[in-house]
Design a binder for these strands. Structure first.
Lengths: 321, 321
DNA sequence: ACCCGATATGCTCAACATGAGCATAGCAGG
DNA sequence: CCTGCTATGCTCATGTTGAGCATATCGGGT
């Protein structure tokens, strides 16, 4: 007899000092008791929690003290083998993942903030194309393609690889975060792939040296990849960035947050022009306290933009260089 | 003791004769046994179904004979009161809704295809602004705004109404389908609002004449609204329309399908220009069998576009007139 | 044979948006 | 009063988009 439980996962995002951070907890997920990073998660109380997101807010508050503002449902993960130990206990855990954006970085006890690019080093292009791609990822994927059992599979692996990582003349699409992670998982280039296999049929050992990038418990890195991709898409057509900023900010601050999320550098003047004539912000007349050069004007988010434009967002004024 | 069950809902979409259709089944959802339209749904078998979407495909095939191709997870609905009768039996049903796009219109026995604009008459702007908006919706919402208990609520209702329905100078955003439905629900302008309330506290009777637009069982119209909004957004940046078209088509056929989904008329020449230099399609040299005028060239979807552009889709060349 | 009604397709043009980069402004600190 | 720094203004070539005119090519009638 298999019992179903609803788990609720939260990807809680904040951006400070130009670093996008997510809230993680420690989890003893392997038999051996090794400790891994995990996303905060808790069960739905089917009697008490009127809605899923209320359940989420309830225990996030209980556990971390954080009171969530902007919350958005991300995706529901229900693969039978996503938690092998639960399965052995006759339990099927279906997890509904949420994305939450917060401003403050007040930390709980169990929790800690981590740079999300620690988990996905290949996603940060702000300092140029990450060298890990050409140094480690591309060759490893090349080997995986070559190891395909037949020509058709090889062809398919080639196409997926090229599209996901912008190889072979294809262009890099910042939103395909999940596609990239899943490809690496399938090619057994992330530790989770070995771990999951070992849990299903003990005895197999990890061979290849895994890629840089911190693993997570369960399928949490997959959830995180989903969140990152979704957020990168969303800032382009909904003014969600402002959930991550203080109510009053300079245009450079805004730009840095967008860059942190998108993982690319933007052309400053064009960025200004864009957000200004999109009507997304409104000058306050006040100026910023010094940051090194000429004082910057302080801006606020202009709520009226919601009435005016159908899809107001920060449509990235394209990569610099 | 409350038991949790996972339900799987399918919004199965096809477009024929310029009408977007969804597959519905009949459901006896009310106590009295009145029959309403419902979306096809079935339970997840927590032991047998390895993944959620496999479960979905399994029973859709069993029940309707349809073998689904393109399937995408939509949203997970978990409100405690979404199925009051289940709740009385100590059951909490969390439903994971999926969007499926199909070409053929082979019908099952229990199932039938329905024009989705029957459920949302205000969403079809192809013949101009639907008169139901100004004739019925706007006045009713106006009354609802006026009936707000305090100035703050009134202000908030006003803003939501204006943004959702493009009133008071705001612009219409085709993607806000769910926002509009939820607003109407909250303002008790759809039959479901009365039905749900009556099921919670019997005795109350429906007063106002409801708006045009066919109701559905449970919260299925909400699910449908989610699907429509999502699909309208998605065609703009992913080449999903082609899942609804035969492998070979004319540009006008393509345009009609996009128009059916988006609910607006497009400028023909600009639409052609757009899809052609976006590299989305490729001429075959062959021509269409007559449809009344000069023969049209037949096109096919150009898969290579996936490598070339980051977000290939049919970015609507804007409304005609 | 020629005209009409329908579509299909080509092309033009003005308005606007975008990618790049030069130039100037206004602060702090030696 | 330089120098280093960031903020802001502006220009300019190029692309993209909204509109609409013009022509092509079919079937069917007269």
């Amino acid at each position: 007899m298999t019992t179903v439980t609803i788990g609720l996962n939260a990807v809680i995002v904040a951006v400070t000092e130009e670093i996008p951070r997510i809230l993680t907890v420690r989890s003893r997920s392997t038999e051996a008791g090794a400790s891994e990073d995990a996303l905060p998660f808790g069960p739905l109380d089917p009697e008490a929690d009127r809605t899923l997101d209320r359940g989420l807010r309830r225990w996030v508050e209980e556990q971390t003290g954080l009171s969530l503002g902007y919350v958005e449902q991300l995706y529901t993960f229900g693969d039978r083998d996503r938690d092998p130990r639960a399965r052995q206990r006759g339990l099927r855990v279906v997890s509904v993942a949420y994305l939450a954006l917060v401003r403050e970085v007040s930390v709980g006890l169990e929790a800690r903030w981590r740079d999300w690019y620690e988990f996905f080093p290949w996603e940060d292009w702000r300092a140029g194309r990450p060298e890990v791609i050409d140094r480690a990822i591309a060759p490893a994927l090349e080997a995986w393609i070559a190891a395909a059992p037949d020509a058709h599979t090889r062809q398919e692996r080639r196409e997926r690889t090229d599209i996901a990582f912008g190889l072979g003349g294809a262009s890099w699409d910042g939103e395909r975060v999940l596609e990239r992670y899943e490809l690496l998982y399938e090619a057994s280039l992330v530790p989770e792939a070995w771990r999951d296999r070992a849990e299903r049929q003990p005895g197999e050992e990890s061979l290849a040296s895994p890629l840089p990038g911190r693993p997570m418990a369960f399928d949490h890195r997959r959830i995180l990849a989903t969140a990152l991709g979704r957020l990168r898409g969303k800032i382009k057509y909904r003014p969600v960035v402002f959930e991550l900023l203080p109510p009053v900010f300079t245009l450079l601050q805004l730009q840095r947050v967008v860059e942190a999320l998108a993982g690319v550098r933007l052309h400053k003047q064009n960025f200004r022009r864009l957000v200004e004539n999109a009507g997304l912000v409104e000058g306050t007349g006040r100026q910023d306290v010094q940051t090194g050069g000429r004082p910057a004007e302080l801006f606020v988010f202009r709520r009226e933009v919601l009435r005016e434009r159908p899809a107001p967002g920060v449509g990235l004024p394209h990569v610099r260089r």
